[in-house]
Amino acid sequence: MKQNVVKSIAFAAICMILGILIALQMKNVNNDNLTENNLAALQNRLIDVAKKNEELTERNNSLYELVQLLEDDMATGNDQVQAIIAEKERAAIFAGLREVRNYGIEIQISCNPDMKVSATILRSFINELRGIGAQALAVNDERIVAMSEIRDSGDNIVINGNAMIARSRFTIKAITNPENERYIVDYLMDMRDTIANSIQYESYQYDIQINVMPEMTIPALSEQSTAFKIDLLMQN
């Protein structure tokens, strides 16, 4: 009888140890699925969020200072109004409502006189210039903003509601960072070569010239432009 009890206890103990060992083994198996790549991805994400937090903290501090200035009874009304005007001006520059100038890149595009320049080509350059950090853009001195439309329409290309003859030379202007000049010019040259070598555009015989301009002026876009559908935007 006593022997049976000892046997049962031993049996239970072995089963328990076996269970624990299997569990530990399972844990190791799970660890096997983890790789250095997981860690690297996590670290990248961590750096990304840390950077965003740092930036947001700075933004909140600046906002807090502005709120304090606006709340400050001691500040003269003039200081506060000047701060608001400065804020309005920044928004206007960002929106494309101010004529601006600086160093930039000019791209001239023309094609075989029997063909018409395609709006797709203009849009491609505009998209890529945006992607490489252009701060202001214009096509044939028509300011391009987020809601600008560039489309083919018969013999014309319509930009912000204005028709331009598609068989003419188009000039894109972009104010970009001079520090990135080499990268930007090489990038645009690659793009030009891709278009020149493309079967799709073979018959167009595009002539695309890329020039660095020490100074250029990009006009403002009027609030009445079709790119700004103010009635729709302010309906509520």
Binding site: E55, L63, E89, F94, E99, N102, Q135, I175
Partner: peptide, 18 residues
């Protein structure tokens, strides 16, 4: 969302006429 953080998008733009 970043309307308070636009400086880096306009810092190269010198206004010609306000």
């Amino acid at each position: 969302a970043e309307s308070d953080n636009i400086e880096r998008f306009i810092d190269m733009l010198e206004v010609v006429s306000p």
